Amino acid sequence: MFNWKLKDVIMVCLFSVIFSFIYLGAVYLANFIATILAPLGLAPFAYEILFGVWFMAATFVPYIVQRSGVAIIAEVLSAVIEVIMGNMFGPIVILSGIIQGAGPEIIFAKDRYKNYTMKNMCLAAFAACVTSFIWGFVRGGFVKYSATMLVGMFVVRAISSIIFAGVICKIAADKLAKTGALSSYTLGNQNNMED
């Protein structure tokens, strides 16, 4: 974690700002969807559908920077900026950022921050799903839901996580690398060699 270069700090900060806007937008979109689903008793699913969006910094940024600590730091910075911009849930989302970044951090660390295959990106996204779901019992009052509701919520969150933080982040980072914008990073060099 102490071998970061200035370019790494700048890259993490830049994408944390970008993802903070995406995260805040997802909060308002989830609230809108929750309003529509509330009469059906399915309001919690509005957040589950979009939950993977809130893990994107924890997979996308580490894939580019490929250093220890990036998943947690990118998530926490995104959360801090999101709170400053007016996230209605307040500072608790900063703690959520730590928890959401911890799952991917563990997955990337096990391969010494060298394995960013589609499978591993999706596994990292799923790990964020698991850690955040456990946090849901502590903070979100998940104990009030039936077993059927909890299974349904977990399945939807897992699918959302894999799609947004796994598949979309992998494809987006690869496409960004092909533009040459990441030529000073391993990812940019790998994509140049493939071309």
Score class of each variant (00 low, 15 high):
residue 3 N to D: 13
residue 6 L to P: 08
residue 9 V to D: 11
residue 9 V to K: 10
residue 9 V to C: 12
residue 9 V to P: 11
residue 12 V to Q: 05
residue 13 C to E: 08
residue 14 L to P: 05
residue 16 S to R: 01
residue 20 S to W: 01
residue 20 S to M: 04
residue 22 I to V: 12
residue 22 I to Y: 00
residue 25 G to I: 07
residue 25 G to D: 04
residue 25 G to E: 04
residue 26 A to R: 00
residue 28 Y to K: 09
residue 30 A to F: 08
residue 30 A to C: 07
residue 31 N to C: 09
residue 34 A to C: 10
residue 35 T to Q: 11
residue 36 I to L: 09
residue 37 L to G: 05
residue 45 F to K: 01
residue 46 A to N: 08
residue 47 Y to K: 11
residue 47 Y to N: 10
residue 50 L to K: 05
residue 51 F to L: 12
residue 52 G to N: 01
residue 55 F to T: 02
residue 55 F to K: 00
residue 56 M to Q: 03
residue 56 M to D: 03
residue 61 V to D: 00
residue 63 Y to R: 15
residue 65 V to D: 02
residue 67 R to W: 09
residue 68 S to K: 13
residue 72 I to M: 12
residue 72 I to A: 07
residue 73 I to D: 00
residue 74 A to K: 02
residue 75 E to L: 11
residue 80 V to K: 00
residue 80 V to L: 10
residue 82 E to N: 11
residue 89 F to P: 11
residue 89 F to H: 15
residue 90 G to V: 02
residue 93 V to W: 07
residue 94 I to T: 14
residue 95 L to M: 14
residue 95 L to E: 13
residue 96 S to G: 15
residue 100 Q to N: 15
residue 101 G to L: 09
residue 103 G to S: 13
residue 104 P to T: 13
residue 107 I to S: 04
residue 112 R to Y: 14
residue 114 K to L: 07
residue 114 K to H: 07
residue 115 N to M: 13
residue 115 N to Q: 14
residue 116 Y to V: 08
residue 117 T to S: 15
residue 119 K to M: 09
residue 119 K to A: 10
residue 121 M to E: 00
residue 122 C to D: 01
residue 126 F to W: 02
residue 126 F to K: 01
residue 127 A to T: 08
residue 128 A to R: 04
residue 129 C to W: 07
residue 130 V to H: 01
residue 131 T to M: 13
residue 132 S to Y: 08
residue 133 F to K: 04
residue 135 W to I: 08
residue 136 G to K: 00
residue 137 F to H: 08
residue 139 R to A: 10
residue 139 R to N: 11
residue 144 K to F: 10
residue 147 A to D: 14
residue 153 M to W: 10
residue 156 V to W: 02
residue 158 A to N: 11
residue 161 S to K: 02
residue 163 I to L: 10
residue 163 I to S: 01
residue 164 F to E: 03
residue 164 F to K: 00
residue 165 A to I: 08
residue 165 A to Q: 02
residue 169 C to H: 00
residue 171 I to N: 08
residue 171 I to G: 06
residue 172 A to Y: 03
residue 179 T to S: 13
residue 179 T to Y: 06
residue 180 G to F: 03
residue 182 L to K: 00
residue 184 S to G: 14
residue 186 T to L: 13
residue 190 Q to K: 13
residue 193 M to L: 15
residue 193 M to F: 15
residue 194 E to I: 14
